[in-house]
């Protein structure tokens, strides 16, 4: 996998973890309840493990990113495409 493809996947993986918690409208309700918790509260608790799984996947993906390399090699972050 090329490094830019890998970084695209990383960003796609991480995007829901950043965007979902900010969209209050999608979880702003009481029902269904779970163990007495209104939906509003348990959904936000649920987002924590979801975000952790996504971040862990992204970590595992980047971990294989680099065998030892030399300085001359091209960088692997999306930044270099921005520059």
């Amino acid at each position: 996998m090329s490094s830019s493809a890998r970084w695209t996947i990383v960003v796609v993986l991480l995007a829901p973890a950043v965007v979902l918690p900010l969209l209050v409208g999608i979880y702003d309700r009481t029902d269904p309840e779970l163990w007495g918790f209104p939906f509003y509260y348990w959904f936000q608790f649920l987002l924590i493990p979801v975000a952790a799984v996504l971040t862990t996947s992204a970590y595992l993906l980047t971990r294989s990113e680099r065998p030892p390399r030399t300085r001359a090699e091209k960088a692997d972050d999306p930044a270099e495409t921005i520059r």
């Binding site: 973890a17 950043v18 900010l22 975000a51 992204a58 970590y59």
Partner: peptide, 14 residues
Amino acid sequence: AVPYTIVVYPLIFL
């Protein structure tokens, strides 16, 4: 505070 500490880690990661 809860969504805040969810959002912060992907940002730290990047």
